[in-house]
Design a protein around this nucleic acid. Sequence first.
DNA 1: CTGTTAGCGCATTCAG
DNA 2: CTGAATGCGCTAACAG
Lengths: 320, 320
Amino acid sequence: MANIKDIAKMAGVSVTTVSRVINNYPYVSAEKAEAVRQAMKKCNYQRNINAVHLSKGKTFLVGVVVPFSNHPYFGLLIEGIANAALNNNYKLVLIQTNYEEVKEIEALTMLKDKQIDALIICSRICDWRVIEEFIEYGPIVLCEDAREKNISSTFVDHYKSFSAALNYLHQKGHSRIGYCIGRQSGTNSEQRDAAYKDFLKKNSLTYNPDFIFSGCFNFEDGEKVVTDLVQMKDRPTALLVTSDQVAAGILTCCKEHGIFIPEDLAIMGFDNQPISKVMHITTLEIPLVEVGRKLFFQAMDGETVSHEEIAVELIERETV
Amino acid sequence: MANIKDIAKMAGVSVTTVSRVINNYPYVSAEKAEAVRQAMKKCNYQRNINAVHLSKGKTFLVGVVVPFSNHPYFGLLIEGIANAALNNNYKLVLIQTNYEEVKEIEALTMLKDKQIDALIICSRICDWRVIEEFIEYGPIVLCEDAREKNISSTFVDHYKSFSAALNYLHQKGHSRIGYCIGRQSGTNSEQRDAAYKDFLKKNSLTYNPDFIFSGCFNFEDGEKVVTDLVQMKDRPTALLVTSDQVAAGILTCCKEHGIFIPEDLAIMGFDNQPISKVMHITTLEIPLVEVGRKLFFQAMDGETVSHEEIAVELIERETV
DNA sequence: CTGTTAGCGCATTCAG
DNA sequence: CTGAATGCGCTAACAG
């Protein structure tokens, strides 16, 4: 395949001139520019982007770390990032970690390698100290409350929003409240658990470990929850479910087991995914696409560290 | 940041030797190797991957084109590709097209640019002729029946499987059968439509355009279908739904409208997504993760053109 | 086992 | 407005 030198030769100019027309620089005479364009067309010339990257020290690639890509929560986040990226001539490198630390380190290494210009971690698994070692190599952005840290983040204050949800449920008359969550570790989960425990304490309620269901990621995980629920003698009367998908699954399975919503069990979802609207699930809206967009722009602005808190909104429907 | 030359100088060897230890070549004396390793550690050396790429003419990046990433169908496909890729030291570049032709061309251009080593198109929007122009630049793999074409593909024969599903429904006593589909164009959709029309003809049934619902991608799209259904005087008695998500949405909304499944309406999904199991939806299983895996390996094997047909399996549950 | 040297393809001073 | 020369960081003949 033809390279810039070939084109230069063919057009009877220097490589510099070719480079200039490729990059739309001014100060090239019309005739030479035209000659170059002719030559390029004739050879079906395409510049080697790797050479550009090497030369410029930039790749226009941004890495995105997610545990799974086939999950609506991350799907929406990715969508937001992808759209912003594409509009800014950036491409996305998706790193699916399955929550394996090694994969996340691989992603970090890509930043160090300069294979990507910046890294967005949608859900962190590595310890903060290992992340820290990489910040000198390029912008790293987190989707969790990192106000204490010296890297940018876009996040919802899960302590605050979980508290709000809890209080909402309480004021609706519930005092036996449980919650469903994905993984138990992680900043977000820890914030929620803290909110939960503080809520309990404040209202002099006792902590019941059976009321906490972890490993709840997808619709189908709602089935396990209901299976457990059915076998409990003292069931919670309300459930805070950190994903609308799971809430939908619970709702569906409850119907099968004759558990009426919200009479027997109040359910509150999270995210305001489309499914929650169809199923009339009361939920806490999180504008994930917008979060993704913001994450991207923070990743682009490697200079300044900023922390954007995203407001959530309670959407009252029919499951509480 | 230190480069290979600095390390060479520091270790008192040549760059080649440094390169050799970096790449674990044999034939390097233990002492020199050790000296190099020391120097690398001391400088926290990291090789610039772009230089490697330029030098080798390879990027270990494979592009994946999907219309949306937050869709369970593509999510599963991506998962399969991503896992295979990661196990083979390849990274994934995700190109979300939203079914815009330009985006797909951008992806094709990345191949031409040599920014990616191969391209997997999970759902094609471009005309075949434009794809064709790019095959000289690197392996392009399609997830659709491309047996007539000179590029590799992994696919299910949608004509065959749709026919099988139709016959199954027919033999269950249905003759008023409709179907729900994502987009109407595209190889897969056309194959299905052909199967549908042939089925109708063979059984002397009349074609009713109202029985075809397009734009059905997600759970929430089931709502529209049911809204339409409710207003029809002569409803179909069975629906073939090309996505379990949509089937689940239809099922859920039907319940709300007092339409009993399968008595009033039989529903058959596609893919055998987890949600179909929870909701007991009869479906046609497509091993998407496996499809993704195969796509990746075809993309890697740029030499040979192969076509892998994937068998589907009918999973009988309770909605037919 | 080791080093020299010539690319990989392009961008970018710096003179003219 | 133009081009020669240099560098980006690394790999891979090739010669020893």
